[in-house]
Write a protein that binds this DNA or RNA. Structure first.
Length: 426
RNA sequence: GGAGAGGUGGCAGAGCGGUCGAAUGCGGCGGUCUUGAAAACCGUUGUGCCCGCAAGGGUACCGGGGGUUCGAAUCCCUCCCUCUCCGCCA
């Protein structure tokens, strides 16, 4: 969540930036500050009364020790009123505190100044586009037909086993998945990221820490286990970032760069139509995710580095891609700035999002209580960032479509050491 | 699943219900000494929130929650977690 000191000190800035999300920023901020005011004043009162009681208790102890029983009794008699008011003040303070916290949870991150205004995906800015679009014959097949024809991908078997949107890969299709995962991991490790294999199930604290709760609750698969709610991870971001929940890092530990491969589970309720054909949108997909914990001064540069890393992957895969800067209306709840990377799927003739690279500034770290010790030795909130590098299902879709030839499906050169084959044949 | 032990500051480890945010040791930081380093010695060393320009003051926190009490790290209840042994098992 947003930092209270920021809201207090830079109210106008907060409102202006939040309004890029096309929400009623003023009333959100007003309410936060009103609740904050109430909380502070009630704590002030409470602390004062509590201090009085503490003093009284201390003196009772001293009087007892000195054997001045009657005075002690007199003092004790005076405590009951105090205790009653303290209880009232505590209730008031707790209510204010909880109300404030709940309200802050509903406020999304404030977009950075460079984030453009806009309502929807149509308003995103194309930053760069690279690589020639494939020129495919008129009868080029979409990936779901290719996957079926070459025995790589079986959406129908997924339906049989689980339900719609749970693909089954087999043969060269399975090998291709594994090759991509290894390739992405190796490239990230070369770039200095430490590989993590996290749990695929997280608890509520973790889901809250990265901002999935309470905002995106409906998008996660969830179930109860002995009274505790657990969530299937929608992205490796959740467990990996939460590794550093509740920590104070020394400055020389920064940056922390981690990479992890996990399957990702998303309910994607309400999706339909051509958008969800084949691998375009599925409930389970594989993804290699890079996560960074950075000093605030370094995070803008880190974001650009991550973009460059992803571009390198896309170039190596010989996929035409473009980089979008998301507008305020299309950004995720916790993000302060997001680039999306899209690849062109030649048969469908459409761009598919394969990576989302974001900086969360202190929004996540504030929830995570993830801090570093600054020059003045005081703990400060670190910045967190993450990006897909990359999400597999749609990459596979584009690879199959763009590389189809009469002889088979060509495997990009960079991937061949991992697949062990240059061409997928029927 | 059965039986037992325990959860205290970065770590180790004390703590008769009263001045304990908490002894002591280690580690860390600063200093003295030294050509330098080590050793030794001295000092310092948790986090959140509130008030304050600051110095500083207040308050909360000894696994979580609740209770008893004028007062709880210390007593009671409850939940969670860790460890050991047995069983089961990829």
């Amino acid at each position: 969540m947003l930092e209270l000191p920021y809201l207090r000190a830079e109210r106008a800035d907060a409102e202006q930036r939040l309004s890029k999300r096309n929400i009623d920023a003023k009333s959100l901020v007003d309410k936060a500050l009103a609740l904050d005011e109430e909380r502070r004043s009630s704590q002030n009162d409470l602390d004062g009364q509590q201090a009085e009681l503490n003093n009284l208790s201390r003196s009772i102890g001293e009087l007892m020790k000195a054997g001045r029983k009657e005075e002690a009794e007199a003092a004790r008699a005076r405590t009951s009123d105090l205790k009653a008011t303290i209880q009232q003040l505590r209730d008031r303070m707790d209510a204010a505190d909880q109300g404030l916290h709940e309200h802050l949870c509903t406020i999304p991150n404030a977009p950075l100044p460079v984030v453009p205004n806009g309502r929807s995906a149509d308003d995103n800015t194309v930053v760069t586009q690279e690589g020639a679009l494939p020129e495919l014959p008129a009868d080029a097949k979409p990936h779901w037909e290719l996957g079926e024809a070459y025995g790589l991908l079986h959406m129908d078997l997924g339906v049989k086993l689980t339900g719609a949107g749970f693909p089954v890969y087999s043969g060269a299709g399975a090998k291709l998945q594994r090759a991509l995962i290894s390739f992405f991991l190796d490239r990230a490790i070369e770039a200095g990221y430490r590989e993590i294999i996290p749990p695929h199930l997280v608890n509520e604290d973790s889901a809250f820490g990265t901002g999935q709760l309470p905002d995106k609750e409906g998008q996660m698969y969830t179930f109860e286990e002995e009274g505790k709610r657990l969530f299937l991870i929608p992205t490796a971001e959740v467990p990996i970032t939460n590794l550093y929940r509740d920590m104070i890092l020394e400055q020389d530990q920064l940056p922390i760069k981690m990479v992890g491969y996990t399957p990702c589970f998303r309910r994607e309720a309400g999706s339909y139509g051509k958008d969800v054909r084949g691998l375009n949108r599925v409930h389970q997909f594989d993804k290699v995710e890079i996560v960074r914990i950075e000093h605030p001064d370094r995070s803008p540069a880190a974001l650009e580095e991550m973009v460059e890393h992803v571009k390198g992957l896309l170039r190596a895969l010989e996929l035409p891609f473009r980089q979008l800067l998301l507008c305020g209306g299309d950004m995720g709840f916790s993000s302060a700035m997001t680039y999306d990377m899209e690849v062109y799927a030649g048969a469908q003739k459409r761009w598919l999002e394969v990576s989302s690279i974001s900086t969360f500034t202190t929004y996540q770290s504030n929830r995570l209580k993830l801090r570093y010790r600054a020059e003045d030795k005081k703990p400060r909130l670190a910045h967190t960032l993450n990006g897909s590098a990359l999400a597999l299902a749609r990459i596979v879709a584009a690879l199959l479509e763009n590389n189809q030839t009469p002889e088979g499906i060509r495997v990009p050169v960079a991937l061949r050491p991992y697949t062990g084959f240059e061409m997928i044949r029927s």
